[in-house]
Amino acid sequence: MTRPERSRMGRWRDQALALGWLVLIWNLLWGDFTWGNLAGGLLVGGAVLVFFPLPPVTFGGRLRPRALLVFAVRFVTELVAASAHVARIAVQPGCRPRGAIIAVRLRVRTDLNLALTAEAISLVPGTLILEVDRDTGTLYMHVLDVRGPADLVENRARVLEVERRIVRALGSAAEVRRVEADPAEKENHP
């Protein structure tokens, strides 16, 4: 098989996988797996893929189950701790938390890493991704309950640690070396 044929087959495979996920989500949203919902999911999913094509996201990494488990456990731990912190702020009488907008430049600038890191950060209460600059690999995010510059440094370090765990779980060997070398630390400090 020639290189263009392999590339074309890869795109068709990616489109088929995306269609399968869209059909599954369609059926889950309806809450009932019927032939009508399956046909409707195929029609809607096909229309989405035809009229709203997404750029291809390449995966050049390797799945590391142990690192993925470490990421999942740490993510759930941070999720619970941040939820308790935000709940305490919400019910504490007279508490007026200060927020801040910070920029964090990621070390691995692939679309997949940007998307996964941004999603993992946004899912944790108290943080919200406002914008992603694909060209520079920078996440602009709002953080809650900032008391001083030390909190800003801590939030930047937390984002870089989330990126490190994601890259360890899903990145290529070169990407893992890049996050382990940690060259972006100096760029991210105020």
Results as ranks from 00 to 15, higher is better:
T2Q: 10
R3N: 07
E5I: 11
E5G: 11
M9G: 12
W12H: 10
R13G: 15
L17G: 09
A18Q: 10
A18S: 12
L24R: 14
N27A: 10
L28M: 15
L29G: 13
T34F: 05
G36I: 10
A39N: 08
V50E: 04
F51G: 02
P56W: 07
V57I: 12
F59T: 03
G60R: 13
G61H: 01
R64G: 03
A67P: 04
L69C: 08
E78H: 14
A81Y: 08
A81N: 07
H85C: 07
V86Y: 11
V86E: 13
A100Y: 03
A103Y: 02
L106V: 09
L106P: 02
R109D: 11
L114S: 05
A115S: 15
A115C: 13
T117L: 08
A118K: 00
A118S: 14
A120I: 08
S122T: 12
I129D: 05
G137P: 00
G137A: 05
L139M: 13
V143Y: 06
L144S: 12
R147F: 09
D151A: 03
V153N: 04
A157V: 14
L160W: 03
L160P: 01
E161N: 09
E163I: 12
R164C: 02
A169Y: 02
G171V: 03
A173H: 12
R177C: 02
